[in-house]
C-alpha cells in the first residue's frame, strides 16, 4: 500500500499550486473586455461649458482619463498628462478627462490648481463611466485614430507607459487616412472654442 502513502500527501499539490498562483495575481486588476473594440461614443458638457463628443476626435489618438478631485492617485499622474500635452502638441493627439463621481465646482477648482489645458467632460449619472467599465479612479483608456480602445490602464499612468502607448498609436495609420484622406482634423473646433 505504499502508493497510497505517497498519493495522499500528493493531494495537497493542486491546492498549494492554486494558492501560490493566487499570490502572484492582483485581484484588483480586472482585465477589461474593451481593448480592440470601438470606443463608446458620448456627447457631454465640458467643465468650461462647451459640449464635446468623442466621435469628433476621430483621427486622433485620444487618452481618455477618468479622474476626480477627491482622488489622491490622480495627483501623481497629472504631471505626466501635462507633459504629454506639451510634447505631442503638434501631433494627432488629444487629452480628454472625464470627471468621475464629483461635483463640477470641485473638479473645476482642482483643474485650475493643478494646471493643464485639456478639456474634461462632466459625467452626469456616471453613464460614461459605466460604458467604459470603470471601477474607480484613476483609470485611463488609450483610443487609437480609428476610435478603437487600444489599452486600458487601471491606476495612475506612468510617464514611460504614456509615452510608449502614445508613440506606438501615433505611428499607426488611420483607416480613413488610407481610404478617404484626413477627415476629422478640424472637427474639434466645430464644437466650441477649444484651445
Amino acid at each position: 500500500m505504499s502508493w497510497k502513502r505517497i498519493l495522499i500527501p500528493a493531494a495537497a499539490i493542486p491546492i498549494i499550486a492554486l494558492l501560490a498562483y493566487g499570490l502572484t495575481r492582483d485581484p484588483n486588476l480586472v482585465e477589461s473586455p474593451l481593448p480592440g473594440r470601438a470606443a463608446f461614443d458620448f456627447v457631454a458638457p465640458t467643465l468650461d461649458g462647451d459640449t464635446l463628443s468623442l466621435s469628433d476626435l476621430r483621427g486622433k489618438v485620444v487618452v481618455l482619463n477618468f479622474w476626480a478631485s477627491w482622488c489622491i492617485a490622480c495627483i501623481d499622474e497629472h504631471a505626466n498628462f501635462t507633459e504629454a500635452e506639451r510634447r505631442y502638441a503638434d501631433d494627432d493627439f488629444r487629452m480628454l478627462g472625464v470627471v468621475y463621481q464629483d461635483t463640477p465646482e470641485n473638479a473645476r477648482r482642482w483643474m485650475q490648481r493643478m494646471g493643464g489645458g485639456w478639456p474634461s467632460v462632466i459625467d452626469a449619472s456616471s453613464r460614461i463611466a459605466i460604458d467604459y467599465g470603470v471601477y474607480g479612479v484613476p483609470e485611463t483608456y488609450f483610443i487609437d485614430k480609428n476610435g478603437r480602445v487600444a489599452f486600458k490602464q487601471i491606476g495612475p499612468v506612468s510617464w514611460m507607459l504614456l509615452r510608449q502607448k502614445v508613440d506606438s498609436l501615433l505611428a499607426q495609420p488611420t483607416s480613413t487616412e488610407l481610404k478617404t484622406g484626413v477627415s476629422g482634423a478640424g472637427a474639434l473646433h466645430s464644437s466650441g472654442s477649444q484651445p
Binding site: 497510497k4 502513502r5 505517497i6 498519493l7 495522499i8 500527501p9 493531494a11 495537497a12 491546492i15 498549494i16 494558492l19 501560490a20 499570490l23
Partner: peptide, 18 residues
C-alpha cells in the same frame, strides 16, 4: 502562510497515510 499551510497539509496527510 502558504509555506506553513503546505508544511501542515503535507505532514499531516503523510502521517495519516502512515
Amino acid at each position: 502562510f502558504l509555506g506553513f499551510i503546505t508544511v501542515v497539509l503535507v505532514v499531516s496527510l503523510a502521517l495519516v497515510a502512515w
